[in-house]
Nucleic acid binder design. Structure first.
Lengths: 201, 201
DNA sequence: TTTCCTAAAGGACAAATGTCCTCAAATTAA
DNA sequence: TTAATTTGAGGACATTTGTCCTTTAGGAAA
């Protein structure tokens, strides 16, 4: 039996995008299962085919890949109250190049790709919610591209500090650095500068 | 009457993604109009609401925006045989922050957002083609993000030289530079290095 | 407690990139 | 054709970032 609180969190999440009737929500919810991950456990590993979409009830996940040079690059931190999956692997049924790993202890609601598609066909309400969520994913990615190419390292750090302060608390410095597109050394310099400025005020 | 050659080009484009029957294609095609742009004319300008999707039969368009610092940043070059639109403005019916401008003389087939949606509802074939095209757009964006954050300026330049050599021929240096995320000065340095290496061979 | 280990901070120097400028070639206008 | 304008190349120096290394602090194990 799924935790009643988790269910409520998910209900509220969907409600943001589009109202669902009690019945519509229940019809959808029966397909979800609970999944708990301990720190450092994986939601999906490179080389596997991703078969699930997860909703994060609690905790934070890190998405990363190993690039041509062998570096571990963090492409995204998935916060509470959002979806996580390896879209490309899921949709094209190919091996994932991404790893999605729990940064702390994580609680998810997951649905299989097959069930996901089943609901898409049978429920116009679900179709509508998903269209909006996927649109948002796309727009977020556009935003991320613009941040990556326009902001300096220090601006990006300050943005992260403002938008996702929990990340800075729990993620080790090398993950934050690769996410911001700089080396560890540059990130410590930035932290030094930020601390210095604050002490001047 | 739309140029018969343009029609063929579009038919072949759609065919890549999914086969359409002759009738299905004709049913869709009646909604398209021809649009010709001279060099430097706009498909969409910042501040307007984008109402059309365009298929590029001939020519190249540049997508750019003005960032907070007032710089003109090229976010993408749209080549022949691809779609162009300001997705965010189109879908959310908000003012576009993007400009899409003809780099040379351009020939488009355009369809209004309303007609686009009308076909989406009436034609499962069109729905299918569009789902695949939008998925590809998303995957391309992912690819672009990974290139932006992993490759050095010189690697990005070489990639562009290989993948879209026409761009390097016709776009002025500052547009290519902002697209690669560097200044003009860095791009001329890169060109110098590339030329020097080639002469050594 | 003491030792060991790990993670972050930061010093020193090198490399890459940006800023500001000039010059030369190409293009446009008179 | 000549003058004016635009565009790209590239010099000089400043700034930023990377690389490699050492130091420091905090937590885990003996």
């Amino acid at each position: 039996m799924i935790d009643i609180k988790a269910k409520e969190v998910f209900r509220l999440y969907l409600k943001q995008f589009s109202p669902l009737s009690e019945q519509e929500f229940e019809d959808i919810f029966i397909y979800f299962k609970e999944l708990k991950l301990k720190k450092n456990e994986y939601f999906i590993k490179e080389g596997q085919i991703c078969k699930n979409v997860g909703f994060i009830v609690k905790g934070i996940l890190r998405v990363y890949y190993i690039n041509d040079k062998g570096d571990d690059i963090t492409s995204c931190f998935c916060p509470e109250n959002s979806l996580t999956t390896s879209y490309k692997s899921l949709i094209t049924k190919t091996f994932s190049t991404l790893n999605i790993q729990a940064l702390n202890s994580v609680e998810l609601l997951i649905i299989s790709h097959d069930d996901f598609n089943k609901i898409l066909i049978s429920s116009p309400a679900w179709q509508h919610v998903m269209r909006i969520i996927l649109q948002n994913e796309y727009f977020n990615m556009e935003k991320y591209v613009s941040v990556l190419s326009n902001e300096t390292a220090i601006e990006k750090y300050k943005r992260l500090l403002e938008e996702q302060p929990q990340i800075i608390q729990i993620a080790p410095i090398q993950h934050i650095a690769s996410y911001l597109g700089v080396t560890r050394r540059t990130l410590t310099r930035i932290r030094g500068d930020v601390a210095k400025k604050n002490s001047n005020i």
